[in-house]
Amino acid sequence: MNKIKTGILIVLLAAVCFNSYGQGAKSLKINEVLTKNTENFQDDYGQRNAWIEIFNSSFASVDIRSCYLTNDKRVLNPNLSIEERVSMMYTIPKSDVLTEIAPRQHLLFWADNRPNRGTFHLNFALDSVASNWIALYDANGKTLIDSVTVPANIPANFSYAREADGSHHWILKGGDANNYVTPNTNNQTQDKQEKIDGFRKHDSAGIAMAIIAMSIVFGGLILLYVSFRLISAISVKLAKRNAMKTRGITDKKEAKEKAIGAESGEIFAAISLALHEYQDNVHDIEDTILTINRVKRNYSPWSSKIYTLRQTPKN
């Protein structure tokens, strides 16, 4: 029993590690960074600060808790201990349920050097003029998940972002209605549906759409009709087969009953007589069998020789 409990505990711990710190954490990407914020997105305190967007590129939820964010390049020193490296990073708390990132979704961190404001406020700020190196480390404090070097002199309210969520190509976003900054949302947004617009252009009256819709409806009805006919035919065949089997079993039972009652009365009389003779165990009427029955005789003094008068009387 103890071995079973230990095995279950190991499996649960492995599942937790897999979900939070294993291959799931490797799917996290630094997706977009804004270093100088004067007119852009506001935080939960109504302040405009630099921000870092994390993207979950997998199709499963990933919890970023216990991972680390930093802009200090000293952590790249391989001679540092885990404790020394962790002291130069921001530890994402474990107790906040909002640290779980849904599949293909984003999470925003504010680089305002005010960690006392909440989970998503980092303990470092970004330089709005010089270049910034940003890194995301796994919960062990050693494994580098992702990093990016943001160029220097990025204009205010412009962001340095991946062209598409999780892609390898980085671009500068902002200042254009078709290439705007996208905090906490997809880096590429579709404002137009090219296929729908093309269909609307070539079928402005909607005649083709009506024909397609009616064809789909009638096609579905025809498929349902054919399906019901096939199902009913199969059901009738199965019912007939079961009826034939049931009838065959009934005929066999009736034949057996008829066969049992077909014997003549002489046969039953002979069987009854044989059973009677067997139970009574009397064979005196038979010529070749001698039956000896033991007769119990009661003792009587009149039958004893000592009481007879055969002895000579004394004078």
Rank of each mutant, 00 (worst) to 15 (best):
L107K: 03
L172M: 12
F109L: 02
G166F: 05
S232Y: 10
D203G: 04
G141N: 06
Q42S: 14
N298Y: 08
A50G: 15
K296N: 14
M209R: 15
S215Q: 02
A135K: 01
L76E: 14
H202G: 03
I64C: 06
E286P: 00
G141E: 03
N178Q: 12
R65P: 02
Y307W: 15
L9G: 05
E257H: 08
D112M: 07
K305N: 11
T38L: 10
F55R: 00
L223I: 05
P301W: 11
N178Y: 08
A213Y: 15
K5W: 04
K73G: 14
P155E: 11
A111S: 05
I289E: 08
I267P: 00
R162Y: 06
G166R: 02
I292L: 14
E32N: 11
T91P: 09
D72E: 13
T189F: 04
I145T: 04
P155Q: 14
F268T: 08
I92G: 00
V148R: 05
A239W: 10
I231T: 13
L126N: 05
I234T: 07
D43Q: 06
N77P: 15
V33R: 03
H283R: 09
D44R: 06
D280R: 09
E32W: 06
K142E: 12
F41R: 08
M244V: 03
E257F: 06
H276S: 15
T35S: 11
T70R: 09
V33W: 01
A233N: 10
A255V: 04
S167I: 02
V295H: 07
R229V: 13
R104Y: 08
I8M: 08
N31M: 03
D191L: 09
V148N: 05
G141W: 02
L34V: 13
H202Q: 10
D251M: 09
A233H: 09
K94G: 07
S66A: 15
